[in-house]
């Protein structure tokens, strides 16, 4: 079946099967920033924006996305690079597998909460697991990014 998507501002048409998930459709079509960690909605590695909201592409059927707008890291490279630097500086980008999902969540946080408290940041980032590093360094990196200290 054909689906029409707007991905990172570009119109795309993909052929998908009824039981295909968005994370797979995106990866098959070159959006390799979209990772699959758990493939069950628990880790956040597959986070993308769907009509501006952060969602998990591993649990969204591709046909559900027909007619909607998707943003992946490939569509926000400048911002992603900037956030990535803060993560590296705080030592919280090691294997890097979780980073695209984490960065998409940080961008969503920035949109949803103005001047978030530490508690709000930690709560907001709860759906992004990182198995290499911890969340204290991540909190420092996010705060520094939001404060625009660099």
């Amino acid at each position: 079946m054909k689906i029409n998507l707007k991905i990172n501002g570009e119109k795309k048409v993909f052929d998908v099967s009824a039981d295909e998930y968005l994370a797979d459709t995106l990866r098959k079509n070159g959006y390799l920033s979209v990772r699959k960690g758990c493939d069950t909605g628990s880790c956040g590695a597959c986070t993308v924006h769907f009509d501006g909201k952060a969602i998990l592409s591993c649990v969204m059927l591709s046909l559900r996305a027909d007619g909607h707008e998707i943003t992946t890291i490939e569509g926000v490279t400048k911002k992603a690079e900037k956030i990535g630097k803060y993560l590296v500086d705080e030592g919280v980008d090691q294997c890097g597998y979780c980073s695209p999902g984490t960065i998409m969540s940080i961008l969503y946080l920035e949109k949803c909460i103005e001047n978030p408290t530490d508690e709000e940041i930690l709560h907001f980032m709860n759906g992004n697991l990182c198995r290499c590093t911890g969340y204290v360094g991540q909190l420092r990196a996010i705060k520094k990014y939001l404060e625009g200290k660099k």
């Binding site: 628990s42 956040g44 952060a54 759906g127």
Partner: peptide
């Protein structure tokens, strides 16, 4: 609902 997994899952 606020502690159910993460913000992305809760959006779904």
């Amino acid at each position: 609902v606020k502690d159910i997994v993460g913000v992305q899952l809760r959006n779904m």
